[in-house]
């Protein structure tokens, strides 16, 4: 029999080669992500439990907040996701369930998303070819989150740095199509 350990596959292998001068792409294959969906009237309790454990409360709509070992991000009405590096074997679903069982539904999302950080001087112009939202510094700032679409692919975009840097999250099965679009959108930069 072969090695009993199954090797994980990258969702975003096709993204890295698209990086070019003025556009860095830092793919994140190492994340553990869990959905946090508080039941009716329980958001406060959930927020307090998280604050006590991680020092972070649930962020407001369209916002993201990061601490030392966890990031909390709004993901829709009454829904959030928690994000962290997987490290050796960290699993946020396993970690959060005992903490939040009762007041919230905790759902495993680690594998559902393809994630990458786009930065550099051309990052905004390239993304503007797909995302129909205003990414200008007056309209979208570090910590802002928008759920929208690019090239008919649903994306969640978060500004993570002033360079500017944007984290893009999308459903895993679309990752290669997103790379196709990225290649098209960045062609101008490759001259």
């Amino acid at each position: 029999m072969p090695d009993p350990i199954l090797q994980p596959a990258s969702a975003v292998a096709a993204w890295t080669p698209v990086a070019t001068a003025g556009l860095s792409i830092d793919v994140r294959d190492d994340l553990t992500i869990a959905g946090i969906a508080p039941f009716r009237g329980k958001a406060q309790a959930v927020s307090e439990a998280l604050a006590e454990r991680y020092g972070l409360a649930l962020p407001a709509a369209c916002r993201r907040i990061s601490g030392d070992d966890i990031t909390l991000q709004w993901s829709g009405p009454d829904q959030w996701i928690a994000i962290a590096g997987r490290g050796a074997a960290r699993d946020l679903e396993v970690e959060l369930k005992p903490l939040l069982a009762g007041p919230a539904a905790v759902v495993e999302h680690s594998d559902a998303r393809a994630v990458g950080v786009f930065s550099g001087k051309h990052a905004r112009d390239v993304l503007a070819k797909g995302l129909p939202i205003d990414l200008h510094e007056r309209a979208f700032r570090v910590g802002d989150v928008a759920i929208t679409h690019a090239n008919h692919i649903g994306v969640t975009i978060t500004q993570t740095g002033n360079e500017p840097a944007y984290e893009i999250m999308l459903y895993r099965s679309y990752a290669d199509s997103f790379a196709d679009w990225l290649r098209h959108a960045t062609a101008e930069l490759t001259a």
Partner: peptide, 13 residues
């Protein structure tokens, strides 16, 4: 109704 709905299509192969 007090329910939370979340898609899990992409989480599972």
């Amino acid at each position: 109704l007090d329910v939370q709905i979340a898609s899990a299509t992409e989480q599972w192969a």
